[in-house]
Simulated assay, not measured.
Amino acid sequence: MSAAAVLKNGCRAAALPVALIVLAQVAATVTQLESDSLASPVDIAKAFVSVMGDGTLLKATADTLKAAAAGCLLGVGAGSLLGIVLGLFRIADDVLDLTIELLRPVPVVALIPVVMMLLGFGAEMEIVIIALGMLWPSVVLARAAVKEVEPRLMEVSNVLQLGFAARVWKIVLPAILPQLFMSLKLAAGYALVVAVTVEITANPLGLGYGIMMAQQALRPAEMFAYLIWIGAVGWLISVLLNAAQRTFFPAFVNGEGR
């Protein structure tokens, strides 16, 4: 895609957000907005510059991203390993199927009180909750990916009498790596959502806590600045992971690897 085409697509995508911002500012100016719950785009921009300038926003972002990354990698790693085991061993799949189906629908936010009783407040509690939120989707995706591996490859591993570790490393992982990366990409965005949710409800750290403090102090401009920044961070993560996917798994992105 040419630079001109990229620029054209970018302008087209930005048209609606820019129009909404302009309309919001016009409405705020006409009504002379003074509210404890709403703020004009100009006031939000000023609040953003303020919290960015004093380092508050950057520190909160670092706290949230560290917890989200650690929880995401832990949950996706453990879930993918369990999914591979279930995909390779029918007996294990049958034994654990009911347990997984019972635990999988439990909302991760419902686990916050339980984990808090065990670990208390802090980054460890947040990481564990994020990991639990990533666990079951990763199990399901990895198990399905293993079951779709070319049967002849599995027959070759049986003929060669490969052990579990060798079978996973030489046969299974190369075949399902694109699907595992897709699992990680989906989990990364969800991990940010879970991290902010935990910080709003239970953990006095990060971007979620910043939103709560701004709301309780009746600073709507700052609260919206945090919200918009969270959206921008999530968008940037998605862009980076999409670029990595196009670089390392171009065939899968184009549909040839499915």
Rank of each mutant, 00 (worst) to 15 (best):
L160G: 13
L160W: 14
Q161M: 04
Q161C: 06
Q161F: 00
Q161A: 13
L162P: 03
L162Y: 03
A166W: 10
A166E: 14
A166I: 05
A166Y: 12
A166P: 11
A166K: 11
R167M: 02
R167I: 08
V168G: 00
V168R: 00
W169T: 14
W169S: 12
W169G: 13
K170F: 10
K170L: 13
K170Y: 12
K170A: 14
K170W: 12
K170V: 10
V172N: 01
V172F: 01
V172K: 03
L173S: 01
P174K: 03
P174I: 13
A175H: 08
A175P: 10
A175S: 15
I176C: 08
L177P: 09
P178H: 06
P178G: 12
Q179D: 11
L180T: 11
F181K: 02
F181S: 09
F181V: 10
F181D: 06
F181C: 08
M182I: 04
M182L: 09
S183R: 08
L184H: 02
L184I: 15
L184T: 14
K185E: 09
K185M: 07
K185Y: 05
K185P: 11
L186F: 14
L186P: 12
A187S: 15
A188I: 07
A188N: 00
G189A: 06
G189P: 04
Y190S: 04
Y190V: 10
Y190G: 03
A191Y: 01
A191H: 00
A191G: 01
L192T: 08
V193T: 13
V193Q: 08
V193H: 03
